[in-house]
Design a protein around this nucleic acid. Sequence first.
DNA 1: AATGAATGAGAGTTCATTCAT
DNA 2: AATGAATGAACTCTCATTCAT
Lengths: 203, 203, 203, 203
Amino acid sequence: MGITERKEREKKELRKLILATAARLFLEQGYEKTSMRNIAEAIEYSPTTIYLYFKDKNELFYALSEEGFRKFFSYVNNISEELAPMDQLKELGKVYLQFASDHPAYYELMFILKEPMESEQTAESWDLGMKSHGVLTTIVNQCIKEGHFKDQSPDVVAFMIWSFVHGAVSFKICDRMKMYDNLNHDYLINDSLKFMNHLLEKN
Amino acid sequence: MGITERKEREKKELRKLILATAARLFLEQGYEKTSMRNIAEAIEYSPTTIYLYFKDKNELFYALSEEGFRKFFSYVNNISEELAPMDQLKELGKVYLQFASDHPAYYELMFILKEPMESEQTAESWDLGMKSHGVLTTIVNQCIKEGHFKDQSPDVVAFMIWSFVHGAVSFKICDRMKMYDNLNHDYLINDSLKFMNHLLEKN
Amino acid sequence: MGITERKEREKKELRKLILATAARLFLEQGYEKTSMRNIAEAIEYSPTTIYLYFKDKNELFYALSEEGFRKFFSYVNNISEELAPMDQLKELGKVYLQFASDHPAYYELMFILKEPMESEQTAESWDLGMKSHGVLTTIVNQCIKEGHFKDQSPDVVAFMIWSFVHGAVSFKICDRMKMYDNLNHDYLINDSLKFMNHLLEKN
Amino acid sequence: MGITERKEREKKELRKLILATAARLFLEQGYEKTSMRNIAEAIEYSPTTIYLYFKDKNELFYALSEEGFRKFFSYVNNISEELAPMDQLKELGKVYLQFASDHPAYYELMFILKEPMESEQTAESWDLGMKSHGVLTTIVNQCIKEGHFKDQSPDVVAFMIWSFVHGAVSFKICDRMKMYDNLNHDYLINDSLKFMNHLLEKN
DNA sequence: AATGAATGAGAGTTCATTCAT
DNA sequence: AATGAATGAACTCTCATTCAT
């Protein structure tokens, strides 16, 4: 009884270890340069072992992306519905930046990398992605109900906002902020979010 | 006389062919999966030949990025200074989207890909990038002079706008717009730009 | 139990096979022209397999040289200490020629080839080399104690003797004896050793 | 008239430049790593140009070796015949060491390297080699006539002496004297030659 | 006399993956 | 559950060499 459970637990733990290590290496070196061997070495198991947990490199990275989406949803789904819609929107922006800052490797995998995404994502990732995006849409719709964003399609509003945060975060993750090297990058991103909020509020 | 010139021309053309092919393959398959061999096969020359034009793979992709920045600047630098600053800003947004749409491979190389950018870019790329960004900054400053974006730092305003267009374009290039598959993606992007312009105008 | 041992044995055997084949090819074609692929083909394994046993080409040839030094020491260390010092010296000369004749590939690697020796040798090779040379020095010292080589530094005597045998052997291995094609090369070498012994004895 | 001569002179000079550069590079990097391109770059001509002077890499190195033998003979042939035979022998040893010290690249090519010697040497090299060796044989024969090396075959004596100097020189050129790193290598070589001379004299 | 353009062959090495155990 | 052994395919890059000019 206890034995089976322990084994199960250990198995899950190794799976997690593989995922975590893959995420780390992939952030450090990029997808293509992160080899199965690298991961295996890092966790001190044989490369073959990884194949017991994941069919191939693609599947490993799909699983990684899935984990990312799960984490992402837990960030995004945490917004108090008691706040005014516009405040929820602001909060969502904050939380989005926070996720990207906490988990840049996952962010890159989920939203930037093309490499392993050629085949379709897992159903679960898709689902979680949709649900996360649903949070944004819902809030935007509530804002509109309250009189904001007059005459705008909710999709357009949502996409605009999302594009902005994604763009800001992408610049940072893709290391394209050297142009602003005299400024503190995080401050700049935060201030631009404030400016965006400012624009939205008055509308 | 004429002979030398013809040869020179042919050489430049082969160089261009290599660059164009590299750009295409790289857009289709990503940087790491685009091999020197692939490129050579595609242009029906031997791999060795490429090395006559570019020292190594890195240099090929630096040259590519440089060409991208040159093209980019020619788009961005083409905005009539006779327009009102806010109209110049709108025009700049349009032109930015246009560039990304015309040259997605260059865009990805210049603004998204991490892989070969780890080492420094060429001085010329950097220069052109700065100059292009200068166009945005200049326009924003003129807008501010005319009373827009009250109490905002020009850097923050510029970064916010740029983040937005970059985010929108990135979604498309990185194939992350499946969520909006019921809508026409280009329309969505254009409409979101209009919305952004709308917000900026009233400010 | 037995299985593990068998596997271990097989692994060692493949390692030896690689070394032996590398030694042979290298003698036939030289270091630079002996490619990992050549070796792999000769042993009918894939090139990749070699990399399971040796990190890279350098390491393969270091291992080879190490094996050579081990063998060499086993030749040189086999001289009966009950013989008179001068007889030991003669015996050492014989044994030296014998090693070079039995293992010309190793000899070349250890004493002639410059190519892969630029980086340092392994500690073990160096050690064995020193110990082997120590045998010569010891014998020379005993000869001196017995009244030979009056007023000579042992280092000079040792170096002179060693230079001679090395020169003779090198001519043969480097295929530079065509000048004596009317004579039997091995006889010539042996006779020259006898002449050397004759000179030393009377001193 | 003068023009043709100048051109001829220039051609010879370029040939010499190629040879000299090849010799230098080959000493610095070894035969295999000295590429036609390397040489071409060093002399600031195109690789193709070298092929106007030498059919291929082999022929270039044959020519090099030929030049080496010419130089070598000029060293060896310079021994005053007025000296006593034994003194001539001593002088020959000195001169041999001198040549190896002055032109290690040539020495290596002529007496050590196997690589490009697979095909036969040029007739001229062979001839010069024979003549050089003839100098040694002649002197040895004169010594024998004067009562030295009783009961020894001149070939054996010559070969023994030559083996010794070759061995000593080879150790140095092949960088195998690390065992004597506490001693000055050149002194060691010279002293060993003195010891050899001492042995021969008393015989 | 000299070169620029081009190439086939091959180098060392790494990769994702499989199979038997 | 985990591994050691092995491999085919691919990678970047360099080489000696040729040909047209």
